[in-house]
């Protein structure tokens, strides 16, 4: 288990343009503390790319291979093969993509790479919509959420479809390791990143990463919401390992209202008639 106090103090993510309170950049910053400097990032259009790698900026202290939106996992396979050819198999290859870049447009490539059994870690930071392009819904948007493409009006009540069960999808590939996590529970999250890192073959971690402007809350509430999502049963912390799925039980679940009420994207659900 990762000990938070023993994590290195030096930062591998520095000087990003992410919003204050961005859960996504926090997810990446924390993961890199576990992954360490012998890591290559492969990433794709998303808020993450937009806030870290606009020339001449480089907010990562590790090499970063940016690729087209559908292609994170395909480029990963190339990087893995290339490093093997160059005798650098010890370098960790980590894909970082948003929920859109993972569960929607990147799904085919991810399926291919997992099926090929390449040795990589894929971290999906899930902010439950296409944030970089202005908060459009994705396959990972929860039901009821207002986004710019699921607006609320006389006929519209926000997102009307369930959130895609990505963990089940990767599990169906017989992936050696997969997990969900939340930036609100760093010990749990980083232990999962560590396990992913130690896995031979593909490993997948989907980490809930709240987004203040996208969800409509003030930036000091990011960690609180990341915890409430778990405590209200909205975001189960699960692990798929050796073919078995385990879900962390929530001892005393809190009322869902506590989670919803803090976010403008759900305001219409709670408004009195």
């Amino acid at each position: 288990m990762v000990k938070l106090k023993e994590l290195p103090g030096n930062e591998l993510v520095q000087g990003s343009y992410a919003c204050a309170g961005c859960g996504g950049i926090l997810a990446v910053r924390m993961a890199l503390k576990v992954l360490g400097p012998e890591t290559v990032i492969v990433t794709t259009p998303s808020c993450l790319l937009g806030v870290t790698t606009f020339y001449p900026q480089l907010a990562f202290k590790v090499p970063c291979v940016n690729v087209t939106f559908p292609s994170t996992a395909a480029a990963i396979s190339g990087v893995v093969a290339g490093l093997r050819r160059r005798g650098k198999s010890g370098v960790k290859v980590v894909g970082l993509a948003g929920d859109g870049g993972t569960v929607d447009i990147g799904l085919q490539a991810l399926s291919g790479a997992i099926e090929r059994g390449d040795n990589f870690i894929f971290i999906c930071y899930d902010n439950e919509a296409y944030m970089n392009t202005g908060v459009q819904r994705s396959g990972s948007t929860p039901p009821g959420a207002r986004t710019t493409t699921t607006p609320v009006g006389r006929a519209g009540r926000g997102e009307d479809r369930p959130k895609k069960d990505m963990l089940a999808i990767v599990a169906a590939h017989n992936i050696p390791y997969a997990a969900t996590a939340s930036i609100g529970y760093p010990q749990d999250y980083l232990t999962k990143v560590q396990k992913a890192m130690e896995t031979e073959g593909p490993a997948y971690v989907q980490v809930l990463a709240p987004c203040p402007p996208g969800w409509g809350y003030s930036s000091h509430l990011t960690v609180k919401l990341a915890r409430l999502a778990v405590q209200t049963g909205q975001w189960p912390l699960a692990e798929y390992e050796g073919g078995r799925l385990t879900v962390k039980e929530v001892a005393n679940p809190r009322p869902l209202n506590e989670y919803l009420a803090l976010q403008a994207r759900f305001a219409h659900l709670l408004a009195s008639k």
Binding site: V65, V67, P70, A75, I76, G78, A81, G82, R85
Partner: peptide, 9 residues
């Protein structure tokens, strides 16, 4: 995309 990833290594 895979060729690109391999080439940059």
């Amino acid at each position: 995309a895979a060729c690109y990833g391999a080439a940059v290594t």
